[in-house]
């Protein structure tokens, strides 16, 4: 009814020849790639390269100037798809005067979660991001890392088939970062398609496949291993520089 994919198959994302202009400025230029069902796909690129702009097109809150974005077999943006997608924005969009629990309650009811199931799910995601003890605290008293984790918890709340995370681990300490990546891997194993943006190179290694973005162009797509081999280098960082036409 909603999409063609089933849970077992998982949902993919097809981005075809997408341009996005702001005024006269071309911020994304002929972006063409595919995110396969149930994989962790990383978008790697320096700040200002257009990661957030691209991710918003896939999250269904923006529309490409030309080209198409298809999620789970449905062309975006589509309102009825938004309930199947989990989106964590780059800046924490939380209600600071409310407690974490109240923030979760609000978003949970927007996604139609209710009753006991909702309560259990809220506890689950808060445990996942190690915030159970701070559940009743106001978000205004949270540190930057805690806010990041709460945003992540909210994005996962409704068990989305597609999880889109815009720089999810900024400001999160290394130990917790490892446990969050373990969780992402578990989720992808159970069929969730995950798209992560990052400008941290060592995080890129953990993705199944990577897309490298520079100045609004996709300069390379492949597994971390393939990218390094093709560029004939040993690190992702060197590979990025090689594909960008800068020989290190």
């Amino acid at each position: 009814m909603l999409g063609k994919g089933s849970r077992e198959e998982g949902w993919g994302i097809q981005v075809s020849h997408v341009d996005r202009k702001f005024g006269k400025r071309l911020v994304l230029q002929d972006i063409h790639f595919e995110v396969k069902p149930a994989e962790i796909f990383g978008l790697l690129g320096p700040s200002g390269s257009g990661k957030t702009t691209l991710v918003k097109l896939m999250a269904g809150i923006d529309r490409p100037t030309s080209g198409t974005v298809v999620v789970g077999g449905v062309q975006m943006p589509r309102l009825d798809m938004l309930g199947k997608i989990g989106y964590m924005a780059q800046s924490d969009a939380l209600y600071a005067e409310l407690t974490a629990k109240e923030n979760l309650d609000f978003f949970a009811s927007l996604f139609g979660l209710r009753g006991r199931g909702r309560r259990r799910r809220i506890e689950e995601v808060m445990e996942l991001v190690h915030l159970t003890d701070s559940m009743k605290k106001r978000v205004s008293t949270y540190s930057g890392g805690m806010k990041r984790r709460l945003s992540l918890a909210i994005a996962m709340l409704h068990r989305p088939r597609i999880l889109i995370l815009d720089e999810p681990t900024v400001g999160i300490d290394p130990a917790l970062r490892v446990s969050i990546w373990n969780e992402l891997r578990d989720m992808s194993q159970s069929g969730t398609t995950i798209l992560v943006t990052t400008h941290v190179m060592d995080e890129a290694e953990k993705c199944h496949r990577l897309g490298m973005l520079r100045d609004g162009r996709l300069i390379a797509v492949g597994t971390p291993g393939e990218l390094k081999a093709n560029a004939n280098v040993t690190t992702i960082e060197e590979a990025f520089l090689a594909f960008g036409g800068v020989r290190g």
Binding site: G60, I61, L79, L82, G83, A89, A93, L110, F111
Partner: peptide
């Protein structure tokens, strides 16, 4: 200004 509206429109709310 806090971006929650942007977040809100990423949910199925009309």
């Amino acid at each position: 200004t806090t971006g929650t509206l942007q977040r809100l429109v990423a949910t199925p709310i009309r």
